[in-house]
């Protein structure tokens, strides 16, 4: 009987593990810790490691199991009762919003959360801890003799005027496969009609589609791409720093600012540990580390106010619209029609 229960437990936990498509996982700790905080995140371990290590230095009794998965996997994992995490971090604001709206997040209130600007939190359930501009990066050699574009209209004119130069050398996210790409595309579409014109122009130049920012940035560096549209600025800045051939441009008509958000799932086993890690993320120490070690800009209302072209994607119910399956289907088919000329 006991064996049966054990076997059943193993099968169930295996099933739980199977339900989640993990990209990478690491247990931070010396083995002497008395408890483990389980974090599910879309942010790479390498970026987050300095933060986790600093957190452990401050809380020696807590080990950290840091699991990385894609935005869609993360979104699916939270309502799954077989999987329990104490803190869920994602760059897919719309999906995080949907989770919070549907009651999968716990409320947490503290001095740190109260200190966040209103646009950086929602219902004391969803908290932003980094603000990242979504940028255009380009390879200077490809633009030789051309003025670098400052707006989407500039970019459209350039592409139209020099199709031979950019044919097959434009990269962007595939919103069908990437949650972040979908969010950027939908927010672009919401902000301005120029997006559809740009999509059609890019679509006519056989664009290359990507799942993540990293590969796009690498291809721009290698010169395989002339430009990559909608790349996470923080990643680009880190990878491109010191490269004289690459340029990072925040388009002046508008630049979306992505908020990386965290929530404590309703089904957390140790929500107080999740809250402790969240508090650390939002604390001044945590924010400074995020800004300087992780390379993700800290939450700062002042920098947004001083740069008028930066528009934070607001944590409001509007985000739910593009999560709607019908809306998503409709948007993706329009996008595909414009981009892939199908």
């Amino acid at each position: 009987m006991r064996r049966l229960v054990l076997a059943l437990g193993l099968i169930l936990s295996a099933a739980g593990a199977l339900a989640l498509d993990i990209e990478e996982e690491r247990l931070f700790g010396s083995g002497n810790e008395t408890s483990v905080v389980k974090i599910l995140s879309t942010t790479d371990i390498d970026i987050f490691a300095p933060l986790v290590i600093a957190f452990q230095a401050a809380n020696p009794g807590i080990a950290v199991r840091y699991t990385v998965a894609s935005t869609t996997e993360v979104y699916k994992a939270v309502p799954d009762s077989a999987l329990t995490f104490d803190l869920v971090i994602s760059s897919a604001m719309d999906l995080q919003m949907k989770l919070a709206n549907d009651g999968y997040a716990r409320e947490h209130r503290s001095l740190e959360t109260e200190g966040l600007p209103a646009w950086a939190r929602w219902r004391d359930q969803l908290f932003a801890f980094a603000q990242e501009p979504v940028v255009l990066i380009l390879s200077r050699p490809a633009f030789e003799g051309l003025r670098l574009p400052q707006t989407r209209a500039d970019l459209i004119d350039l592409l139209r005027a020099n199709p031979e130069r950019f044919e097959g050398r434009i990269g962007t996210y595939d919103p069908n496969r990437s949650g972040a790409g979908y969010l950027f595309a939908t927010q672009d579409a919401r902000q301005s009609d120029t997006f559809w014109r740009l999509s059609e122009v890019i679509g006519g130049l056989s664009p290359r589609l990507y799942d993540g920012s990293g590969a796009m940035i690498a291809d721009v560096q290698s010169g395989r791409l002339a430009l990559a549209y909608n790349v996470l600025g923080s990643y680009a800045a880190a990878q491109l720093s010191g490269d004289p051939d690459a340029a990072l441009i925040e388009l002046e008509d508008f630049t979306n600012v992505l908020l990386r958000t965290a929530l404590i799932p309703r089904g957390a086993e140790r929500p107080e540990l999740g809250a402790a890690f969240l508090e650390f993320l939002l604390s001044d120490t945590g924010q400074t580390l995020i800004d300087q070690k992780a390379g993700l800009p800290r939450i700062d209302a002042a920098t947004l106010a001083s740069a008028g072209h930066r528009r934070p994607i607001r944590l409001d119910p509007g985000l739910l619209v593009f999560v709607d399956p019908l809306k998503r289907q409709k948007f993706l088919s329009e996008w595909t029609a414009a981009f892939l000329r199908r």
């Binding site: 709206n101 549907d102 119910p317």
Partner: peptide, 21 residues
């Protein structure tokens, strides 16, 4: 054909942080 406008839900967030269904 159904096309929920972004503003339809966005405006509901204007007065507070209420859940929307």
């Amino acid at each position: 054909g159904i096309d929920i406008p972004y503003t339809a839900f966005s405006m509901l967030g204007a007065t507070g942080e209420d859940r929307v269904f």
